[in-house]
Design a protein around this nucleic acid. Structure first.
Length: 221
DNA sequence: GGTGCAGACAAAGTTACCTCA
DNA sequence: GATGAGGTAACTTTGTCTGCA
């Protein structure tokens, strides 16, 4: 596919053949088709694109441009204002920086990638901390349940989800198939299935967690 | 209006070069 | 001086969107 320059002043031209460009058997001269490649050897690490003319580079290995502090600063500034560039902005910025529009474009692509990476790392950290705190909370609640179970005196009662009245724990039974705790006939309405954890939470008069509340009895029970 | 095509562009992934410890 | 790691410019591939015939 040939990407033609969008403005006549731009010499931006990249020719790449899908499934061909990265082929190991590709002759090294193919890279020369990209006229964005380095102009002259000596200018590269010192002054970027001082002369705009894109002379043939005669098959140089790709050199790496090092942006000056001012260039980086200006690029960062415009990135802060906008994470993407419209072609006009790109042209202007390139002129200001004495870079090719293509270089500005690449810089913005890489910059977006870096900021996304940073964002992802931050989210990862946040989730790790959250996981840690939930684990700790879970451990605390389990311990609390154990304590309450240990100190029970009389038969434990469960609050009926239907009548909101206390039910004796003796009305509870375990479904052998799904290992859920179910209430027996004492409570009016459809047989209510609840998880072991829910029952335990009810025992300690705690409100079940949303995740547990959302669990519905299976059709089989 | 639906379809196919080409161009532009962004995201994701990769490569290669440079710097520095 | 050699070397490995990290940073990043430049590149490739792929997918999406848009305008046009």
């Amino acid at each position: 596919m040939a990407v033609l320059p969008r403005s006549s002043s731009s010499l931006e031209l990249t020719i790449s053949v899908p499934g061909f460009a990265s082929s190991p058997s590709l002759p090294s001269s193919v890279r020369e088709l990209d006229i964005n490649q380095v102009p002259s050897e000596d200018e590269w690490m010192t002054e970027n694109m001082e002369d705009e003319e894109e002379s043939s580079n005669g098959g140089h290995p790709r050199k790496k441009l090092r942006l000056t502090k001012q260039q980086s600063h200006l690029l960062e500034e415009s990135f802060r204002q906008n994470h993407t560039l419209i072609p006009k902005q790109k042209e202007t910025l390139a002129m200001q920086l004495k870079l090719r529009p293509r270089q500005v474009e690449v810089w913005f692509q890489n910059r977006r990638a870096r900021s996304k990476l940073k964002q992802t790392e931050m989210e990862c950290e946040y989730l790790k901390r959250w996981f840690g705190s939930l684990t700790e909370q879970n451990r605390r609640l389990r311990r609390e349940v154990e304590e309450l179970r240990a100190m029970k005196v009389g038969p434990p009662t469960v609050i009926s989800p239907h009548s909101c009245e206390p039910l004796p724990a003796s009305t509870l039974s375990m479904c052998p198939r799904c290992e859920r705790v179910t209430t027996n006939s004492m409570d009016k309405g459809p047989t209510k299935t609840t998880t072991d954890a829910t029952a335990a939470a009810a025992l300690s008069s705690k409100v079940a967690t949303p995740a547990l509340q959302s669990r519905q009895p299976s059709a089989a029970c």
